[in-house]
Design a protein around this nucleic acid. Structure first.
Ligand SMILES: [Zn+2]
Ligand SMILES: [Zn+2]
Ligand SMILES: [Zn+2]
Ligand SMILES: [Zn+2]
Lengths: 165, 165
DNA sequence: CGTCTGAACGTTATGCTATAACATACGCCA
DNA sequence: TGGCGTATGTTATAGCATAACGTTCAGACG
């Protein structure tokens, strides 16, 4: 199958975005089926909304777009769908922004480092395993048992970095 | 001088807490003086409140305690003091908790890894430099220019880990 | 089929987190 | 002493998140 190791930070590069979204929706369908959980219309639409741009959206932004499409327009509608996607690893919560982003590498259980461009607001995922190893080492020293990690990085993406010079 | 490298995760160990707080207040005074910024009564009291326990407090928890002491009891009073402390590196924001903690190693410019016990809510700082190096390496690969990092770890502190067995 | 059941969804209401905007007080220095 | 910048007090509002309850719907089972 023609799906080699994808660029982790694909969000930062020009790419066939329609293909990127379509593929991720298809992956989500497959994952949901394999786990016997339901990617219902609301959940699917929320994932599509998150995928539309490589940016993190607040729950109320998502809600507004949902309402336009005729879904319920009360906060729990958005939060429940977002919680589902996060639980299934199809989206990530960005604590620094109180916002949510679609996962670009679902399936692999991972805790990515989230790269957030402070100028264009683009958000990408970098591999988290090396960072996680460093965290585990420090935690070990402190006698702390790691369960979940949050690694978020604010800075400039390649494009904005170029523009800022 | 009798001040050897302090235990980074002192919060997780039994210690002379009055001495620990007093020392940190004194350090804060010195830092403020050296930078010609003012550790005013509100700011100082907020730092004391954060130091009372090694836990992260929400702005409204801080505010409630401030009000008891006769300071203003509107949100901006707490937020302004907290922002000052964070700017000066005397406190840290914990994004995962929407809360604030006193810094236990002020002065050293640092971005610690914050260790949060999910049972007792104790919060400690682990050295962030190795984690930061790992982040820099991943960011380099993605062409991303790192400016600020958030590293927060949820898990069990040594005591709760023992109790949970 | 018909009915039961649990998951998902819609809706109301409320609570927590954070900041904008403006007024007042105070210390410092020309 | 007058002006200025910093800090504080206060009002109002914006933004984020969840509790609680009723309704709908798909699938399981007899
Ligand atoms: Zn991901
Ligand atoms: Zn950018
Ligand atoms: Zn610190
Ligand atoms: Zn604990």
């Amino acid at each position: 199958m023609p799906d080699p190791a994808p660029d982790p930070a694909i969000a930062f590069h020009a790419h066939d975005h329609a293909h990127c979204c379509g593929g991720l929706i298809a992956e989500a369908e497959a994952i949901a089926a394999s786990r016997s959980v339901r990617l219902t219309p609301v959940r699917r639409r929320v994932l599509e909304i998150l995928l539309e741009e490589h940016r993190a959206l607040g729950a109320y932004d998502v809600l507004e777009r949902l309402a336009r499409d005729g879904f319920g327009n009360q906060p729990p509608v958005a939060y429940r769908a977002l919680d589902f996607l996060v639980d299934q690893g199809l989206a990530h919560r960005v604590a620094r922004l109180n916002a949510f982003m679609a996962c670009t590498h679902p399936g692999h259980s991972h805790t990515p480092a989230v790269l957030i461009c402070r100028l264009c607001r683009t958000v990408a995922e970098a591999p988290g395993s090396r960072v996680r190893a460093a965290i585990d080492a420090e935690a070990e020293t402190a006698g702390f048992a790691v369960e979940r990690t949050t690694v978020e990085v604010l800075g400039l993406c390649p494009a904005c970095r170029e523009g800022a010079r």
